[in-house]
């Protein structure tokens, strides 16, 4: 049978296809441009001196060692606090909860949290952690603010992987006489460890790219501190430092150097999550 398609229909199809291709090319070009532009402008300024010194007004040099340390401290503290809460909440939702109302309430709260903009987290974090809990402007206050921001991410990824644990695993363990907590600890959690790791990687990505929530909670200082002293004092993370150097001091070379570092970390984090996703797919496929 010979298909007859009118010229008008053909033209419409061709137009729609062109739109699709143009959009896709635009998105690809945009990503490539962002990557190349930031790396080309930033990488030449990423020197050992920049990475391993602190800013010195005497010698008029800028180093980002304090900002790197602060970022690492904040990532560690945030994950240490958010992991037990997020994983625990997911376990409650998936393993324990019997009351549908409670489940709906918690899930609604998590969704609401994931929609709140980071500037509002910053404000409330400042009110609650810096003022009410009197931690002052410190990395600790910043971390705790980020804990609440990242809670939905950890909850969601953990819950998704809890759902993929086959019911027969649990039944098998129960049949052997294990209590509920023992089953969760020794059978369910180890099976969904990949999902929890994915959640961690995603959270690290969010923490690295966060700035608005940290501006008023963690502050701007650039001092090199040990972990515990650092948590108690104010400090800028890489993104906050980037903002300050670009917007308030006009040091674009330094800003681009930090941007290049952040860009590389972003790509690494994305490769890791893609890899983890594939790993889980393979396991679930079996």
């Amino acid at each position: 049978m010979i298909e007859r398609i009118s010229g008008k229909r053909k033209a419409w199809c061709a137009m729609m296809r062109t739109f699709c291709i143009i959009s896709l090319v635009l998105v690809t070009a945009l990503t490539a441009f962002m990557l190349i532009y930031v790396l080309v402008r930033g990488l030449p300024h990423v020197t050992p001196e920049l990475l391993f010194t602190k800013p010195s007004t005497l010698r008029n040099t800028i180093g980002i060692l304090p900002d790197i340390l602060n970022t690492i401290y904040i990532v560690i503290t945030t994950l240490l606090v958010v992991l037990p809460i997020g994983v625990g909440a997911a376990i409650y939702l998936n393993e324990y909860a019997t009351n549908k109302k409670v489940v709906e309430m918690i899930e609604f709260a998590a969704e609401t949290l994931s929609g709140i903009p980071s500037i509002i987290y910053g404000l409330v974090g400042m009110l609650v952690f810096c003022q009410f809990c009197s931690f002052g402007t410190s990395l600790l206050a910043g971390s705790l603010t980020l804990v609440i921001m990242n809670l939905p991410t950890i909850m969601r990824t953990t819950q998704e992987s809890l759902k993929t644990v086959p019911e027969s695993y649990r039944e098998g363990a129960f049949a052997l006489g294990a209590g509920k907590w023992r089953v969760i600890r020794t059978v369910v959690l180890p099976t969904c460890i990949n999902g929890i790791i994915t959640g961690c990687i995603l959270s690290i990505g969010r923490i690295l790219s966060e700035s608005a929530a940290l501006l008023f909670t963690a502050g701007f200082a650039h001092n090199v501190n040990g972990f515990f002293r650092g948590m108690g004092s104010a400090g800028a993370t890489l993104t906050v430092a980037l903002y300050v150097y670009a917007s308030e001091r006009g040091e674009f070379d330094i800003a681009f150097a930090i941007a290049a570092i952040l860009m590389i970390l972003t790509v690494i984090i994305n490769l890791l999550t893609t890899y983890m996703g594939k790993l889980m797919e393979r396991r679930n496929g079996q």
Partner: peptide
């Protein structure tokens, strides 16, 4: 490839977008 691109685009910190916007 595109999924990776979109992931990177989503992961770029907003200050980096701001910086590129400021300079270009």
């Amino acid at each position: 490839v595109m999924e990776l691109c979109i992931g990177v685009l989503a992961g770029i910190p907003s200050v980096v977008y701001g910086l590129v916007g400021m300079t270009i």
